[in-house]
């Protein structure tokens, strides 16, 4: 390995370590909150058609659970990533999706109004085969206007460091 690439590896290690240390101090902090948003039939129909899954839903009055995870992304701003929950870890480079977990407490029906809150829940360093990886987990919790919990989505992002593509 050349000296330059060794320096590069060390720079990435510093970037990951410093970025995760900064985030560790913010565990539990609210990153974003939004709502109430009404889940209308048109939004659900478009989402269902866009999925292109064979057949029709068994219950057309229930919102597909994965649509929940997309609610914070609206409205669309073409060619810009406007996802508010991803602004907290800009110092870490080269993100890849580390997995998504949905936990469902109850069904969400069309016409309901939903509120959401995203919080930073985990930030730590894991040694990968080619160097340190920054692991960041954010949880978005959803609840109805009546205060009942609908569910939560945990998103894990793995940062490899370096310059963003």
């Amino acid at each position: 390995m050349s000296e330059r690439s060794s320096d590069g590896q060390e720079a990435i290690r510093r970037q990951i370590t410093a970025g995760i240390a900064a985030l560790s101090a913010r565990i539990g902090e609210e990153i974003a909150s939004w709502g109430p948003v009404e889940i209308d039939r048109t939004t659900v129909s478009r989402y269902w058609e866009a999925l292109g899954f064979p057949g029709r839903p068994r219950d057309c009055e229930i919102v597909p659970l994965t649509l929940l995870a997309l609610l914070p992304r609206r409205p669309v701003d073409i060619n810009r990533d406007v996802r508010p929950s991803e602004q907290v870890d800009n110092a870490l480079g080269n993100p890849v999706n580390g997995g998504t977990t949905f936990t469902i407490k109850r069904a969400l029906h069309i016409g309901e109004r939903v509120r959401g809150r995203t919080a930073l829940t985990e930030a730590f360093v894991r040694e990968g085969r080619s160097g340190p990886l920054g692991i960041v987990v954010k949880q978005t919790s959803f609840w109805g206007d009546d205060g009942t919990e609908i569910g939560a989505v945990d998103r894990t992002t793995i940062y490899r460091g370096g310059i963003e593509r």
Partner: peptide, 15 residues
């Protein structure tokens, strides 16, 4: 979801 009725019977999904 297509395997259960009602669809809200999905308690947890990890991907």
């Amino acid at each position: 979801t297509s395997l259960v009725a009602p669809p809200s019977s999905v308690r947890e999904l990890k991907c």
